[in-house]
Design a binder for these strands. Structure first.
Length: 422
RNA sequence: GGAGAGUUGGCAGAGUGGUCGAAUGCACUAGUCUUGAAAACUAGCGUACCGCAAGGUACCGAGAGUUCGAAUCUCUCACUCUCCGCCA
């Protein structure tokens, strides 16, 4: 969430910037500032009262020590009278703080200056396109048909055992999946990311830390008996490693990577978007996460996008890079680049990576800070990106590389798969 | 699942209801000494909020209670550890 101190100082800029994402913050910000003023004066009053009471308490202690019990009783009466109001005031301060937080929780991150205005994904800016769309054989099939033809993914079996959106990968399909994971992880390691295997279930605090809760409550699977959430992305456990942590400035850059399955309920999705591998409830993803010094976070963002582009180039997939518009920008993000691969048989661009800088928006909830040269605690910047999400990569690979004689595996993967063709 | 023990500052660890934001040790930072380092010595060393500042307030797992006053007493909850059982 946004920092109240920044809202105090830059109210107008923030309101103006939030318009880019079609968020009218005027009322809520005015309200927050009004409540904040009220809170500060109530807090001052309460602190003063407590200071007075603390003084009397000391007096009583001294009087008892010097054996003046009767005088002590007089002061006791004074103290009691003074404190009569305290609970009311205390409640008021707590209530105001809660109100302020409740509003702050609902205000999205301030978009970066270069975020284009817009309402929907059609307003995203295509920054560049790389590679050429393949020309497919006449009777080219979409990946779900190919999956059946070569018996490498079984969607119906998933329905039987679990439900829609939980496919089985079989034989070479499973091997290819594992090959991609290893290829991605090796690449991340070479780029200096530390590999992590995190828990797949997290507690509520972690969900709040990275901002999935409370806004996306319904998107996560929840285990009511133990009150855990299944991770929708490894961003959640990885970034929460640094919840309530004050790092040293010399620790930067902090670079983590993890392969995990991801679980998403995807309530309300339907139609051709969810066909085959396009949208699943459980899917595999390799994620890269960075904790950065505020001065370096945008350079880090560029590095991360380049990293993802290298992967796509190595896989010989046609892709394009989008700068998300205000309307499509995630709640917690200040700037996001999406990378989409072209899946030829579907004739669709599929989002395979989303790389974001959250600046201090997550760090503020996480209380993730570093000590600067003056030994002051300053909020760090957090970033993350998919590198990459597996199913749509698989879809594009299958569709784009199909031939009459089978499906060709990109050269870079062959050492990982052990076969060149499906 | 059963039984027990515990939760204090970066870590270890003390703490009789008032002098405790909290001993001590280690770690860390700066200085002295040294050709340099180590050792030794000296000093500093939690977090957050309010305030221009002086200063003030809060925090000893969380929440509530007793009291003029709670790290210390009472209650509720959460978590951790140990042993036993079960198990990949």
């Amino acid at each position: 969430m946004l920092e109240i101190t920044k809202i105090r100082e830059n109210k107008d800029e923030i309101i103006a910037a939030l318009k880019v994402r079609n968020f009218d913050a005027d009322k809520s910000i005015q309200e927050v500032l009004r409540l904040d003023n009220e809170w500060r004066s109530a807090k001052g009053e309460l602190d003063g009262l407590a200071a007075e009471a603390n003084k009397l308490t000391k007096e009583i202690g001294d009087l008892y020590k010097s054996g003046q019990a009767d005088k002590a009783n007089e002061v006791k009466a004074k103290s009691a009278a003074l404190k009569a109001n305290e609970p009311v005031l205390k409640d008021k301060v707590a209530a105001l703080a809660e109100e302020i937080n409740a509003i702050l929780y609902l205000i999205p991150n301030v978009p970066n200056k270069i975020v284009p205005p817009g309402n929907a994904d059609t307003d995203n800016v295509v920054e560049m396109e790389h590679g050429t769309k393949p020309s497919l054989p006449k009777n080219a099939l979409p990946h779900w048909e190919l999956a059946k033809k070569y018996d490498i993914i079984d969607f119906e079996l998933g329905v039987k055992v679990t439900g829609a959106g939980f496919p089985f990968y079989l034989g070479k399909g499973a091997r290819l999946q594992r090959a991609l994971i290893n290829f991605f992880l090796d690449h991340a390691r070479d780029a200096g990311y530390k590999e992590v295997i995190p828990p797949l279930l997290v507690n509520e605090e972690s969900g709040r830390g990275t901002g999935q809760l409370p806004d996306k409550e319904g998107q996560m699977y929840h285990t009511p008996t133990d009150d855990f959430y299944l991770i929708p992305t490894s961003e959640v456990p990885l970034t929460n490693i640094y919840r309530d942590v004050i790092v040293k400035e010399s620790d930067f850059p902090i670079k983590l990577t993890a392969y995990t399955p991801c679980f998403r309920r995807e309530a309300g999705s339907y139609g051709s978007d969810v066909r085959g591998l396009n949208r699943l409830h459980q899917f595999d993803k390799v994620e890269i996460v960075r904790i950065e010094h505020p001065d370096r976070s945008y350079q880090a963002l560029e590095e991360m996008v380049n990293h993802v582009e290298e992967l796509l180039k190595a896989l010989e997939l046609p892709y394009r890079k989008l700068r998300l518009c205000g309307g499509d920008l995630g709640f917690t993000s200040a700037l996001t680049y999406d990378l989409e691969v072209y899946s030829a048989a579907q004739d669709k661009w599929l989002e395979v990576s989303s790389v974001s800088n959250f600046e201090t928006f997550q760090a503020n909830r996480l209380k993730l800070r570093y000590k600067d040269a003056d030994k002051k605690s300053v909020l760090a910047h957090t970033l993350n990106g998919s590198a990459l999400a597996l199913p749509r990569i698989l879809a594009a690979l299958l569709e784009n590389n199909q031939t009459e004689n089978g499906i060709n595996i990109p050269k870079v993967l062959v050492p990982y798969t052990g076969f060149e063709c499906i």
